[in-house]
């Protein structure tokens, strides 16, 4: 019998730090010497961007803008999860609901959230509500679709086993359908969070006067401060990396790890 002890993977892999660091060094060098070679005095070198970030920190703007952007994403994405996951589970389970509503979802999904900006301004003005609405819109469809597919792809044997033990109704959802669907739901959440972060920046460029998207547009318009433009872009990228890492961490929980590849 091949008895295995519960698996332990190495918690720290030095290559996961060293290799991306090496990539960063190479790219930063290429950037620096590229700008030097081009003779551009408008496009910033890496150390100027760093100085820009420090300047934003000192003026108290960096934290303020990051918090403003994250606040909008939290609301928009949070609402999308609260509505998208239950809706997706229902559509995946009840075929008539799927037939009635899925074509609408698949028709709305390809419309870029950017296309909704005029509508959002019309409905919500330029308050925080407009970008929250846009983020909600951008993330609710991937969340709904992946939750729906997760239920539809669920292995029949889990359902049969549960029914065999007399589990039905709401407990069936809670004890079997939801946990069986959770790995694929989480993958949907990760994609949706990426889209949400993409959209908050776009929304802030138009509708509001705070946040990282606003920082970029404002720095460009008020004095061609390209060091601050790129500083804003770098912050967006870094925060996106952290958000993705957080959701990936969720995917390693014991309750969902079975559904993610080779374990």
């Amino acid at each position: 019998m091949s008895e295995q002890q519960p698996g332990k993977t190495a918690w720290f892999d030095w290559r996961a730090v060293a290799l991306p660091a090496a990539t960063a060094v190479v790219l930063l060098a290429a950037w620096h010497f590229g700008v030097v070679a081009s003779g551009s005095d408008l496009f910033p070198k890496p150390h100027e961007v760093l100085a820009g970030i420090v300047e934003l920190l000192q003026r108290g703007l960096l934290l303020k803008y990051v918090v403003a952007s994250l606040f909008r994403v939290t609301w928009g994405f949070g609402l999308a999860v609260l509505i998208g996951v239950p809706l997706g589970l229902l559509l995946g389970w009840f075929r008539p609901a799927f037939l009635a509503i899925n074509p609408l979802i698949q028709a709305l999904r390809p419309i870029s959230p950017i296309a909704w900006i005029p509508v959002a301004i019309l409905w919500f003005g330029i308050a925080d509500t407009a970008p929250v609405f846009l983020i909600f819109l951008a993330s609710v469809f991937p969340i709904t679709t992946s939750s729906m597919a997760a239920v539809q792809n669920m292995q029949l044997v889990y359902l049969r086993a549960a029914q065999n033990f007399g589990v039905r109704g709401l407990p069936l959802f809670r004890r079997v359908i939801f946990p069986a669907a959770l790995p694929q739901i989480l993958t949907g959440l990760r994609i949706a969070l990426g889209v949400a972060w993409l959209v908050v920046v776009a929304a802030e460029m138009i509708a509001v006067n705070s946040g990282l998207g606003y920082l970029i547009i404002d720095a460009r318009n008020a004095g061609k401060r390209y060091d601050l433009v790129v500083a804003g872009m770098v912050m967006i990228g870094l925060i996106g990396l952290v958000l993705d890492g957080l959701v990936r961490r969720l995917e390693r929980c014991d309750e969902v790890r079975w559904g993610h590849g080779r374990n």
């Binding site: 033990f165 079997v176 946990p179 069986a180």
Partner: peptide, 16 residues
């Protein structure tokens, strides 16, 4: 029916 339990050929153990 819970009084008649099925043991499945493909594995029906809940992985979560």
């Amino acid at each position: 029916d819970p009084g008649r339990i099925f043991v499945f050929q493909e594995n029906g153990v809940f992985p979560w």
